[in-house]
Amino acid sequence: PEFSLDPELHCFPIAGCVAYRGYYQQGRARGAAALLRQQGLDTYIGGVEAYSTLGWFDDPLLNSMLRWDDERLVAVIFHELAHQQFYLPGDTAFNESFATFVEREGLRQWHTSRGETPPASDDHQRQQFVELVLASRERLRLLYARDLPAAAMRSAKQAEFARLRHDYHRLRQREWGGQGRYDAWIDAPLNNAKLLPFGLYDQWVPAFAALFAREGRDWPAFYAAVAALGQLPAEQRHAQLTALQGDD
């Protein structure tokens, strides 16, 4: 919605309710987005590198992946295989944060196994960028909770996006030497839907990192702990993830 960060959910068999939809044809995605915009919703269309069938079928390796370097390919494989390891229908943030942690830790261990030092610069830049966007999301959440006329809310929303762009460019100049990986993203139109993946793919990553450490960095023990978390009622699961986030 225009004045909300809560996603429109789409519900399917097996996968449960998710905060996005996937299309194999770009034209169909654009058409669906146009219909949603007619309903007054914010929309965002982005390309997806890969997807998981949750173990029901072999996950696809696409011919477009053959042009990637090894690190990028390995990262995507770790991420998608994590969904086969565990998937909780109806909780997108849990699933994607879990897979993102497995991707990052798996990639780190993959580099170590090859006697390589995992690259840190890009990860640091990405972390700073994500923190910037999540801070903007939090300010928008507080804004949308206020009782303001639609025109005033709309103006304040655009002011927040202007602030996000300003903060980004200042961070790029101050800490990244004027080189930013996310220039195209930040300079393109912004709306609530475009910010959504940052709340889904990154929200609980520190919690899963803390859980992995608590389980002695042992993958089978970690997966069992993740499955146990997934069995909890939503409110209790959220509370435990929040507690783990504080322990990180």
Rank of each mutant, 00 (worst) to 15 (best):
H169T: 01
V130S: 00
L36T: 05
E105W: 02
G106C: 14
F129Q: 05
E80R: 13
P89M: 01
E2F: 14
Q231H: 14
F78H: 15
L5E: 15
Q245N: 12
L190G: 00
G216E: 15
F222D: 09
F94L: 10
A188P: 00
Q231I: 04
L36D: 09
L171I: 01
F98A: 15
L5V: 10
H166W: 01
L142F: 12
L244F: 12
L5T: 09
Q25W: 03
P119I: 13
A33P: 11
G47R: 00
G177T: 02
L9T: 03
A193N: 02
W110Q: 05
V130H: 06
R126L: 13
R163C: 02
F94T: 11
G177E: 06
A224E: 12
W219A: 00
V76A: 14
A243R: 02
F78N: 13
A243T: 12
G177H: 04
H111G: 09
D70V: 05
F78G: 14
P60R: 10
L62P: 06
R28F: 04
E116S: 05
E103Y: 06
D122V: 08
C11M: 10
T53Y: 12
F3N: 09
M153T: 07
D147K: 05
R72D: 05
A93P: 06
A29L: 09
F222W: 13
L54K: 06
A207Y: 04
L81A: 01
F94M: 07
R214G: 00
L232M: 11
T53N: 03
G55Y: 08
M65G: 11
A15H: 10
R141V: 13
L134V: 08
Q85S: 03
R72Y: 10
G31Y: 04
M65L: 09
R237C: 06
A99C: 15
G230N: 03
A210L: 07
V226I: 05
M153C: 06
F78L: 11
R108F: 11
R108N: 10
D91A: 04
R114L: 09
Y20G: 07
F3I: 14
Q245L: 14
S97C: 15
R217G: 09
F222G: 11
R170E: 00
G90A: 10
W68C: 13
A227G: 09
P60Q: 12
G178K: 13
F198L: 02
A152F: 08
F208R: 14
K157F: 10
L61H: 08
R104D: 01
L35I: 14
G180V: 04
P1I: 13
G46A: 15
R237M: 08
H166K: 05
A213V: 10
V102K: 01
L148Y: 05
V76M: 15
R141L: 15
Y201Q: 13
A50G: 01
